[in-house]
């Protein structure tokens, strides 16, 4: 046995944890590059193209920003629910429900633009919250697993939006979208609108609110150990309901921002699986609401890279494979970060 050996420590040092994460991402990209090279592509050239296309032009940065925005909302939605120990697999459905409600207001309520935007925002919040209401009550009062109920609600929302956008709400001359919604979130950088700064600010405010409020303490306690919440006599059920509804509202807000800022129409396929990717964003952020911003940015870069690769004749499955690989290697990296090399005193 050598003079050094690995020892597992109960907690990972933050520096090592960060390093392990970066290492995992780099390794995932390297493996992807290797596989691409084996299929005959030129990974070096592709990588260069992805980087220049993403960061080398205003268009690239705009695209990236437009992808980050919904991911922050859905990531926050999942991460917030996790704070109280609930898995919100339904951010996708809540995103659609919020977009649907906001579109209804935007299309059919003829009021001035600022008021219309404000009402759309409220509609988005309420739509998302309503979409998680049944799973929330079922979990709070009958201990029905929210993982399954929130997931099932997704299909209803997705198909519902497909139906209205290809049926009753379809615009004249269009195949599968509604008419353009008159109210728009103002832009500040090309096509990039204020939804992005708002999302980042929201993440910071939520993190601050949870750390610095009595409500936040109760949420952390109830999420960490329901038995202790019972012991302390805090209103755990009320907190669960509030947090889950807020999580739904966040995803719904993401849907509103998407239609009012980016797409301007309600259509099927509005969400680029943002709701499901939000789960990954939240998991990568390791329960940190501020971390959601960064993991959303990473996820957006990967999505963007996928779009660029598609123009080079690669399938979208490549992107799925890369994201899966990153999540997988990150999980390994997180575990490895607990190990440190220690001098073997026996030698």
């Amino acid at each position: 046995m050598g003079p050094y050996r690995l020892q597992r420590f109960p907690s990972a040092a933050p520096g090592i944890a960060l390093l392990a994460r970066l290492g995992a991402i780099v390794l995932a990209l390297l493996i992807s590059a290797l596989v691409l090279a084996l299929t005959g592509a030129k990974p070096g050239a592709l990588a260069l193209q992805v980087v220049t296309a993403s960061f080398g032009s205003q268009f690239g940065l705009e695209d990236l920003g437009l992808l980050v925005t919904p991911l922050i909302f859905t990531g926050l939605s999942v991460a917030l629910a996790l704070k109280i120990g609930a898995w919100n697999i339904g951010a996708e459905g809540q995103f659609y429900a919020g977009a649907f409600a906001a579109s209804a207001v935007g299309l059919f309520l003829p009021v001035a633009e600022p008021l219309s935007l404000f009402l759309m925002l409220l509609a988005g919040l309420v739509g998302g919250a309503l979409w998680i209401l049944i799973p929330t009550l079922a979990r709070a009062y009958a201990e029905v697993n929210e993982l399954i109920t929130t997931l099932l609600m997704n299909f209803v929302a997705v198909l519902g939006v497909y139906y209205v956008s290809t049926g009753p709400w379809r615009a004249k001359g269009a195949n599968s979208t509604t008419a353009r919604i008159p109210a728009e979130i103002p832009e500040f950088f090309g096509s990039l609108h204020w939804g992005l700064p708002a999302a980042v600010l929201l993440a910071l405010l939520l993190a601050l609110a949870l750390a610095r409020s009595r409500f936040g303490y109760e949420v952390r306690l109830a999420g960490s150990n329901p038995q202790a919440a019972l012991y302390a006599g805090l209103p755990a059920r009320r907190r669960l309901i509030a947090v889950m509804l807020a999580a739904g509202a966040l995803a719904g807000l993401g849907g509103m921002v998407e239609v009012a800022g980016t797409v301007h129409r309600l259509q099927g396929g509005l969400s680029n699986s943002y709701g499901y990717l939000g789960i990954m964003v939240a998991v990568l952020a390791r329960g940190s609401l501020v971390g959601v911003v960064f993991s959303a940015a990473l996820m957006a870069f990967i999505l963007n890279a996928g779009i660029i690769l598609q123009t080079q004749g690669l399938t979208t499955s490549t992107v799925l494979a890369v994201t899966g690989l990153i999540l997988f290697l990150t999980a390994i990296g997180d575990e490895l970060a607990h190990y440190r090399l220690v001098r073997d005193a026996r030698a």
Partner: peptide, 11 residues
């Protein structure tokens, strides 16, 4: 039941 094991000593 008396503690939340994963939360900090302070909490």
């Amino acid at each position: 039941s008396g503690l939340a094991p994963a939360l900090s000593v302070a909490a």
